[in-house]
Design a protein around this nucleic acid. Structure first.
Lengths: 343, 343
DNA sequence: TAAAAGAACGTTAGCGCTAACGTTTATGGG
DNA sequence: CCCATAAACGTTAGCGCTAACGTTCTTTTA
């Protein structure tokens, strides 16, 4: 395309008849460069096919322009929404997102965080409050704002945007109780890997216990992510072991969908024979037939709020917020309530 | 945590009693550093909480360690799978993924590509073959391998991993014909924004035409992404306008699910009253009730293959592959075939 | 009208690392 | 025991950009 080597700022400066520093300024907004000079430089840059070298710029300025974020899985509408919210919330600040997934594995998270820290991000956003000791030390010692999301860690590293998964689980238990169900189960996954799912389970079962109901109907062993397949298998096990179960909460909408369809395929009616609740307010649960009761966690807003915390932290606002607690709401739908609208 | 400023390689070198160059070597595998020295340096680095500055390393070595990828949407299981495949395929080469989404907008893609190019990625992976002229010029002039995916562009920029969306659409048309359906519709979206969806539609309708069937039953106007909601609305319109429709292909599994459930809610039986086919082989289509006929595009393998092309291009293997053509297969399920297994 | 203030540029220096090459120290074969 | 060979480490230089400060010229204000 061009000559052999890529054009540099010096090449553009030479062609435009100005100093490299003026080129640097001309390519940034809100800098004191005359309109005519700026235009001349733009033209020279275009002619050479010059694209600013952000690697060198980051090195020189000490600001990478990156915010790094780890999520358990990219293939998850909830975390994708949070990532999208973060991206959009950072756009105006000129910050770009470095996104990585941990596969629900804290050891992998540690590797990922270390790899990201090498890139000298200006802030770190992680999912959850469960980390390896070294990972926690890395984050704490990175010298940049850290935001933990999707949870309310007991000992936050720095900043938090999240909600109580246990509380959310308890809300669902209460709802099922209010609807008149008494023999109630939980379908989840391996809590050692998905601590948020485990919290939901704990809150749910404890609430059952406090309501005076048995809380031993538990199918939760598979490794996360708990998808439709795991939900389907879990429902088979559940119905085999406790055939008289009246209602079940699933750790996610995906597993709820798998579980519900397994019940339907076995000829059961939902919610008359068995009620099903999910978690996460995926589009899926609204469109399923019957529509599935779920918990709206406002995944997008978690990302937007995390961006707000990051931006205010980087601006060094004194007394900036350290904790944004969300309160997920139960969305009651047909799968747990015959009174709910339509099918 | 530490002192004021972050530790540098020189600090580690000083503490370990070696030169900075030895530290640089010690932190990379396959370098000639004695085991004892390496260990000493590791200890010093740990003591100082030192994390390699990849920004400076990239600047100095001229290799950023990034591969950049653009997808239309992150909140899409198919593209998420491709991103995952790419990440995993690049892991052994020490390359990290820079992921961004375009929102099905070529102007946004252009902005994103330019922003990525500033980071001096070692390769670019983009979705589809439709780009703005400037975007195409940027990619072609970047001086790095470029892989277009999910499509077979007529004039590829460089390398390609994809399949013919038109062919895949035609396969579905043929399947519906073979099953005996004759009044067949297509539910899609705005083709100006989703060229792959438009290709599916074109191939599908052309195949209907060649089979001597009417190909005017088309509901395709909404802006991508075409989700469950759009699918549901489109099915309402379809049934209103052409109530005697026997079968419909939807541009994606999500819209197929929304469409199918709308039909079911109106009391129609699937597939007896109306058959529904989707696209993409999401988990959703396998678990839906009835299970939805779809097209398996092997999204993960697209990412893995793109990684292979990138790696071989960077290794400079002579005569390396420029085109990997996939052949998506129709997965026949209950939603279009009463003969298909179970419900 | 002179002094102050600001806009528009240029100059100097250096960010932290690694490529390339030079030097020293083990290792082994004749 | 000497020299060739390689392993282990050090030295030098520079990647492309921007922060900080300096200079020139124009505009504003008392």
């Amino acid at each position: 395309m061009n000559d052999d080597r890529k054009a540099t700022m010096a090449d553009v400066a030479h062609l435009a008849g100005v100093s490299p520093m003026t080129v640097s300024r001309a390519l940034k907004p809100n800098t004191s460069v005359s309109a005519s000079t700026r235009e001349k430089i733009r033209a020279a840059a275009d002619q050479l096919g010059y694209v600013l070298d952000a690697t060198a710029a980051a090195f020189s300025s000490g600001r990478s322009g990156f915010v790094a974020m780890t999520v358990p899985s990219i293939n998850n509408a909830n975390f994708a929404d949070t990532a999208r919210g973060l991206t959009e919330g950072l756009r105006d600040s000129g910050l770009e997102l470095l996104l990585g997934y941990t596969d629900y594995d804290t050891a992998e998270e540690e590797r990922l965080v270390e790899a990201f820290l090498r890139r000298r991000p200006e802030a770190m956003v992680v999912t959850g409050g469960a980390h390896t000791d070294r990972c926690r030390a890395l984050l704490a010692g990175a010298g940049v704002p850290v935001v933990e999301t999707w949870d309310l860690p007991k000992a936050p590293i720095d900043r938090v945007v999240g909600f109580s998964n246990a509380e959310a689980g308890a809300h669902v238990a209460q709802h099922l109780y209010d609807e008149g169900y008494r023999r109630i189960a939980f379908i989840g996954g391996d809590g050692a890997r998905d601590s948020r799912g485990a919290d939901r389970q704990r809150g749910f079962l404890r609430a059952l216990d406090q309501l005076g109901l048995p809380c031993d109907r538990l199918v939760a062993h598979a490794a996360p992510p708990i998808t439709m397949e795991e939900g389907a298998l879990a429902m088979s096990k559940l119905l085999e072991r406790w055939p008289d179960t009246q209602a079940a909460m699933c750790v996610s909408d995906l597993s709820a969908f798998g579980a519900m369809n397994t019940a339907l395929r076995q000829g059961l009616r939902v919610p008359e024979d068995i009620a099903i609740a999910g978690f996460g307010a995926y589009g899926l649960s609204a469109h399923a037939l019957p529509a599935i009761t779920t918990v709206d966690v406002q995944a997008l807003r978690i990302g937007l709020d995390a961006a707000k915390l990051v931006v205010s932290a980087l601006q060094g606002s004194i007394g900036d917020t350290k904790l944004l607690k969300h309160s997920p709401q139960v969305i009651v739908r047909r799968s747990t309530s015959s009174k709910a609208s339509s099918a």
